Amino acid sequence: MDLLQIAALAIVQGLTEFLPISSSAHLILAPLLLDYRDQGLAFDVAVHVGSLLAVVSYFRVEILSMARDFFASLGPKGVSSKSSRMVWMIVLSTLPILFFGKLFMAQVQGDLRSMAVIAAATVVFALPLFWWDRHGAQERDEFSLGWREALIIGLFQALALIPGTSRSGITITAALMLGLTRAAAARFSFLLSIPTILMSGGLVTMELLLGDQGIQGTWGDLLLGAVLAFLSALGCIHLFLRLIERIGMLPFVIYRLLLGTLLFLLIL
């Protein structure tokens, strides 16, 4: 890959992994518009690693607190705290995508990857995001979630198996529906991305190790892709959380509608 392709794909991955605008739609659209060849599984792993390191780095204080309190709560005299309970909420929210991902793996990797499906999902799932951004109570933080609500968010996240849905978009939608503030909904969505990115990156890594296509590109390409994905994702998370209470979801909804329309026009 040339430098422009590496930069474009890595930055697209880093930004769209966390913005509610569908990374799959962009990763399909970018090569079409820029006439790029397939980047290969190794590059996909590299940019996923960069995105994962960005969210872990940004929430490092919260993650350390959650891990410390969680393991302390498992002892004979362990006392549950809001941080230890958050670990369980993230685990519960991750279970549905594990179950449905296994159940519908063939469809997700096959028919659902069509541009028509991605275009439709990009448009359709923008509408509940807009609705709940306008009509959600927005009075709770992420630590107030109970196990039933965590499972509801997890079931919504499973819809992200449909390309074009946007994992962050659908989980933020669910959290807003349950009365979380915009910032709290985004924080929970970003924390929930950690096990999800680990799993998806692990699956891609297994495909790479068990497949026959080998490593495409140099180690320098892969490192550059990971670094650019890390920087773009880190900046994206920081700005999104700072601005989201002020700007709301409308700019992203409008962008999704325009993007879905463009994808439909490319099909025709």
Score class of each variant (00 low, 15 high):
1 M>A: 10
1 M>V: 12
3 L>E: 08
3 L>V: 14
4 L>R: 10
10 A>H: 04
10 A>I: 02
11 I>G: 02
15 L>D: 00
21 I>G: 03
23 S>Q: 10
24 S>V: 00
24 S>H: 02
24 S>C: 03
25 A>Q: 01
27 L>Y: 04
28 I>T: 00
28 I>S: 03
31 P>E: 04
34 L>Q: 07
34 L>V: 09
35 D>V: 02
36 Y>C: 01
37 R>A: 03
38 D>V: 02
42 A>Q: 03
44 D>R: 04
45 V>W: 03
46 A>F: 01
48 H>Q: 06
50 G>T: 05
52 L>H: 07
54 A>V: 03
56 V>P: 00
58 Y>S: 05
63 I>W: 12
64 L>T: 05
66 M>V: 08
71 F>W: 13
72 A>E: 15
74 L>N: 10
75 G>T: 14
76 P>N: 07
79 V>S: 15
79 V>I: 15
82 K>V: 12
83 S>C: 02
88 W>G: 11
91 V>M: 06
92 L>N: 06
95 L>N: 11
96 P>N: 07
103 L>G: 01
104 F>D: 00
105 M>D: 13
108 V>C: 06
109 Q>S: 11
110 G>N: 09
120 A>R: 05
125 F>D: 13
126 A>M: 02
128 P>I: 05
128 P>K: 01
131 W>R: 12
131 W>T: 07
133 D>M: 05
133 D>T: 02
138 Q>T: 06
141 D>W: 10
144 S>L: 12
144 S>R: 14
146 G>Y: 01
151 L>R: 11
151 L>Y: 08
153 I>H: 04
155 L>N: 13
157 Q>C: 06
157 Q>E: 10
159 L>M: 12
160 A>E: 05
160 A>N: 03
161 L>F: 11
161 L>S: 11
161 L>I: 14
162 I>A: 01
163 P>D: 11
164 G>K: 10
168 S>Y: 06
168 S>K: 04
169 G>M: 11
171 T>A: 13
172 I>E: 05
173 T>H: 04
173 T>Y: 03
176 L>W: 15
177 M>W: 15
180 L>K: 07
191 L>Y: 10
193 S>W: 07
193 S>G: 06
194 I>N: 02
195 P>V: 11
195 P>C: 06
196 T>A: 09
197 I>R: 07
197 I>M: 06
198 L>I: 14
198 L>N: 00
202 G>L: 09
203 L>I: 08
204 V>K: 13
204 V>G: 04
204 V>E: 11
206 M>L: 03
209 L>F: 15
209 L>D: 11
211 G>M: 06
211 G>Q: 04
213 Q>C: 00
214 G>F: 10
216 Q>M: 09
217 G>E: 04
218 T>G: 14
219 W>F: 15
220 G>F: 00
222 L>A: 05
224 L>G: 08
227 V>L: 15
227 V>H: 05
228 L>V: 07
229 A>F: 02
229 A>H: 01
230 F>R: 13
231 L>C: 15
231 L>Q: 09
232 S>Q: 12
234 L>F: 12
234 L>G: 00
236 C>F: 07
241 L>A: 14
241 L>K: 12
242 R>A: 13
243 L>W: 03
247 I>M: 12
247 I>V: 15
248 G>N: 09
250 L>F: 02
251 P>T: 07
260 G>M: 05
263 L>M: 14
263 L>R: 08
264 F>L: 14
265 L>I: 11
266 L>H: 13
266 L>G: 04
